[in-house]
């Protein structure tokens, strides 16, 4: 039995090493001399070179990567606030309140889970373009404020349905109306779902590339993925240092979030089927 346990751990650790190898490789590649990145299989650099970070941080077109990071943070944090707010409100109505058309509206909400966003992309772009909002953060944040991410409405509905109804009823008997019950009873108890929503919204917005590429044109508005995009077109060795240094930095916030919240994230996936 002992030998079997050891074998099991060896097997799993080997698999973990393979799965995490690209990330470990990136961490070391970002401090390698550029000539070693693709010519040597050694994981460890022969000497520590931080030029990549220095060059990469300077960014492009006179705009530093610091600006890109700042923009990404602004968009991600605003998205989190907007998404949590709007999805919680909608979820409370679906989970707790009786109203006309609640069935069809809920079914519609579930149906939008499967909708490829490309089918709304172009008219949305036209709307924002005519409103003069292209090249601002509004098209990235406004949809979040209007709860278009049905995944999160669904996640919070599922969670709220698990909160005992007696608590609502007790609050009603004590004279709380719908709003007070929401604010003082359901909202505090739904906190775990709101935290999960916040973390996933942050990470998805941080990683989002398509929407940001569609809506942001000027380098001073660029977010981190758009800053990294500048490395996509070039494959010259000279840029490798900066490319890997900035890639590593771009992943740092997600890795930190992951380390702090890993249990919540994994449980969020297994209870709602959220995609990572």
């Amino acid at each position: 039995m002992r030998a079997k346990t050891v074998l099991w751990h060896v097997l799993c650790l080997a698999a973990v090493a393979v799965v995490l190898y690209p990330l470990i490789w990136l961490a070391f590649a970002s401090v390698k001399p550029p000539s070693e990145v693709l010519s040597s299989l050694n994981l460890l650099p022969s000497r520590l070179v931080l030029d990549g970070y220095r060059q990469g941080w300077e960014g492009a077109a006179g705009i530093g990567f610091g600006t890109f990071f700042m923009n990404s943070f602004v968009v991600a944090v605003a998205s989190v606030v907007a998404n949590v707010l709007s999805c919680t409100l909608a979820a409370y109505a679906f989970a707790r309140l009786r109203f006309r058309f609640s069935g069809p509206l809920f079914a519609f909400m579930i149906a939008t889970l499967m909708l490829p966003h490309h089918v709304t992309l172009i008219p949305q772009y036209v709307i924002f373009q005519q409103a003069g909002m292209v090249n601002t953060f509004v098209p990235l944040i406004l949809p979040k404020l209007l709860a278009t991410e049905a995944f999160f409405v669904f996640l919070i509905v599922q969670f709220m349905r698990g909160i005992p109804r007696e608590l609502d009823e007790a609050a009603t008997i004590d004279g709380c109306g719908v709003y007070k019950t929401f604010w003082h009873v359901v909202l505090p108890l739904a906190k775990p779902a709101l935290v999960t929503t916040s973390i996933f919204t942050f990470i998805w917005t941080w990683n989002d590339f398509f929407t940001q590429m569609v809506y942001l044109n000027d380098a001073e508005k660029f977010t981190v993925p758009l800053g990294l995009r500048l490395f996509v077109d070039t494959s010259s060795q000279s840029n490798f240092g900066a490319m890997f240094a900035m890639s590593a930095l771009a992943l740092v916030p997600i890795v930190l979030f992951f380390l702090v919240f890993q249990r919540l994230l994994v449980e969020g996936v297994s209870t709602s089927g959220l995609k990572g």
Partner: peptide, 25 residues
């Protein structure tokens, strides 16, 4: 521990950064 370790790429993999690493590898 293993569950978390195997899950990590799901969060990182959709990013431009991970794809750049992939291309280099």
């Amino acid at each position: 521990f293993y569950r978390s370790a195997f899950y990590a790429p799901s969060l990182l993999g959709a990013s431009v950064a991970a794809a750049l690493v992939w291309r280099a590898m």
